[in-house]
Design a protein around this nucleic acid. Structure first.
Length: 658
DNA sequence: CCTGACTCA
DNA sequence: CATTTGAGTCAGG
């Protein structure tokens, strides 16, 4: 029902006043709630019955409710203890601009309920596709038709251009279907006994909302100077590349392939569709200077377009954290994604390496390839290795010219310190915690254990002083990660540098030696095969196709780790409520906080302790790093405080050094 | 194995 | 002509 007259709005507000929970959906004139975009109308649905209303506020045609009256609507929302919505944080950011207070409310996000109750292979969770899946094509017809109509009138970028009756009807239908989904999925959550994870998600939602709202400071001037440096270096590289293979668009893999083929250079790798691949793994193997230059060019272009160009305007940026974005229960981050900011620094000059340095570069390149699951290279020509030396490590020294680091952009607010807390070897620890083996459980309880080394001893019977120890440790490490990731023998063989047959044999020995690992693996595969679903240690359910059981290990390990983070994030946020310090980011196994200078001597150790605790009682280890002056420069606070025998040193002393 | 962003075609 | 889509690549865990 369109509510746009004084007669009907008073009565309707009175009715809404008594509701214990309301479904909300806002229509806006843009997507940027932290910029200029605003609400043009609010849809509200009761949960006690099926009534739905649309309150037009800022339509550029037709009748809007006067501001005083929409203020009363916000007042009603403010007294409502429970809000329900589809991707509700989006709506809340807009509603807060109108005066809504969200912090004490229970926020039930229907898109999160959908994630919890869909099979793992379902990835598309937007309302349209969810309606199609759940209620058939016809249920989503209104959505498709309205969007088409809005587009035909060029109202699709700014819904306030559309008349209230058109948009109101559309919005009310969204509310109607959101309510229907809410009821149905609540039933499924109970049926699958996921009440506990659901409550975890409900508690997580306002925490994520607050993190999004707070945002993180960005050094826009650094972005500008870094772009300038990149542009001039790109010109240099372009000249070198064109001199060798002629002119073409370096960003186009098709044109790149044609240009290289013409020179008699062919790719040793292929893409999934069978074309020649020109990715990093292929370029390395070409062993030609032009390949290194192309890789440099592409890296710089990626840094510019993805990580620098978007940060020239706003000095505080707000990511969106989705607690519905992954099947495992991890968060995802978007617009911008702050969970994939490059760690390394990059060098912007031609470098002539010494013999020793060339060996290091070869090792680094191989390490990077290994991390991506690609095979390494035996050796490269000296002049080719020079072209690959632009990849720096995680350190960053601004006083050394001609280097850039993207994490240098992120800095603390005035009077704050950035502090990162990260779990060490979290997924390995969670994996081991699943094994029914007293010896391993004891190992877990020790601090400072080299798990890969221990696994090598158990699986292959080597001693630490043996000359073969390093080799077998590497094997054990690759198999552990391979098992956690659920890769097959073929990919494992690439990692191990063996044939698939041999890889299978190493795996068998590993499973034999690491008591409990075989049992864990087999029971997961079998349960998926027979029952179709498994649940992680927090009760999160994964419905998996019968023949995909091998993926289950990854879901359980990654998912349980994720839920530990979810749980701890809530606890840390609660602990920081009465302080000036805040959690800013979560990057899967770490959180980044801004700690007020008055609290720097007390809070970091408290946060570390809170992160180590968990309701599963898995012994976890947390490193604490001060990011000073920016995220690009990390100083280990644990070591600074505890491991120096000189010893009267405290965090405070450390800060003062600067 | 789990993601998101950008570019080209 | 504008917009959408899939493929390829690459940043993170």
């Amino acid at each position: 029902m369109l509510v746009d007259t004084v007669e009907n709005y008073t009565e309707i507000l009175e009715q809404l006043q008594d509701e214990k929970a309301l479904v909300v959906d806002v229509e806006t004139n843009g997507l940027d709630s932290f910029g200029h975009a605003q609400i043009c109308g609010i849809g509200i649905g009761k949960i006690s019955n099926d009534e739905t209303y649309y309150f037009p506020m800022r339509h550029q045609q037709g009748t809007n409710l006067p501001h005083i009256q929409t203020q009363q609507l916000i007042a009603v929302l403010n007294t409502c203890p429970v809000l329900i919505g589809y991707n509700i944080k989006f709506d809340l950011h807009f509603l807060e601009k109108e005066g809504l207070g969200v912090q004490k409310k229970r926020l039930e996000d229907v898109i999160v309920m959908v994630r919890l109750t869909e099979p793992t292979q379902v990835r598309d969770l937007d309302l349209t596709s969810t309606l199609k899946r759940s209620y058939g094509e016809s249920a989503a017809q209104y959505d498709i038709e309205t969007k088409k109509y809005l587009r035909s009138n060029k109202w699709n970028k700014d819904f306030s251009l559309a008349p209230p009756d058109v948009l109101g009807e559309y919005c009310e239908k969204d509310v109607h279907w959101t309510r229907r989904l809410y009821r149905d999925r609540l039933g499924l959550i109970h049926k699958s006994q996921q009440e506990a994870v659901w409550e975890l998600e409900v508690s997580l939602t306002p925490v994520l909302y607050a993190m999004e709202n707070r945002g993180i400071s960005v050094d826009t001037e650094y972005a500008q100077t870094a772009i300038e440096k990149i542009l001039s270096r790109k010109e240099e590289l372009k000249e070198k590349i064109y001199a060798i293979v002629g002119e073409f668009n370096i960003n186009s893999t098709q044109q790149l392939g044609a240009a290289l083929n013409e020179q008699g250079i062919f790719s040793p790798e292929s893409t999934p569709k069978g074309a020649q691949s020109w990715g990093e793994a292929a370029l390395v193997k070409i062993d030609h200077p032009v390949a290194g230059y192309i890789r440099q060019y592409r890296t710089l272009e990626k840094l510019r377009s993805t990580y620098l160009e978007p940060h020239l305007e706003e000095s505080v940026i707000h990511t969106g954290f989705c607690n519905w974005g992954t099947v495992t229960g991890r968060l995802s981050s978007r617009e911008p994604n702050l969970q994939n900011i490059p760690r390394n620094h990059f060098k912007l000059t031609d470098i002539k390496l010494t013999e020793e340095e060339r060996l290091e570069v070869l090792q680094r390149v191989n390490a990077i390839l290994a991390a991506k699951g690609d095979a390494g290279v035996e050796e490269l020509k000296p002049e080719v290795l020079d072209t690959w030396s632009f990849i720096g490590d995680e350190s960053y020294d601004e006083s050394v010219g001609n280097q850039i680091a993207i994490r240098r952009l992120f800095k603390p607010r005035e009077n704050y310190y950035l502090v990162g807390f990260d779990y060490s070897q979290m997924e390995v620890r969670v994996f081991l915690s699943y094994l029914q083996n007293e010896e391993i459980q004891n190992l877990l309880r020790k601090t400072d254990v080299d798990f890969h080394g221990e696994a090598a001893k158990l699986a292959f019977g080597v001693e630490e002083d043996s000359s073969e120890f390093k080799f077998y440790r590497q094997m054990a490490k690759a198999i552990t990660f391979g098992t956690i990731y659920g890769i097959g023998n073929k990919k494992l063989a690439i990692q191990l540098g063996t044939t698939p047959r041999e890889a299978g044999q190493y795996k068998r020995r590993y499973f034999e030696g690491l008591k409990g690992s075989k049992g864990f693996f087999d029971s997961v595969v079998k349960t998926v095969e027979t029952r179709g679903w498994i649940k992680n240690r927090y009760g999160r359910v994964y419905r998996i196709p019968a023949d995909m059981g091998y993926k289950g290990i990854n879901y359980l390990v990654q998912g349980t780790s994720a839920d530990i983070l979810n749980e701890r994030l809530i606890e840390v946020s609660r602990a920081l409520e009465e302080t000036q310090s805040k959690v800013l980011l979560q990057v899967h196994d770490e959180i980044i906080c801004e700690i007020h200078e008055d609290e720097i001597t007390t809070l970091p150790t408290q946060i570390t302790e809170l992160l180590k605790e968990n309701s599963l009682n898995i012994p976890l280890q947390v490193d604490m790093e001060l990011c000073d002056p920016t995220w690009a420069t990390k100083i280990d606070m644990n070591k600074a405080v505890f491991s120096s025998p000189a010893a009267t040193q405290t965090v405070e002393d450390y800060i003062d050094w600067e």
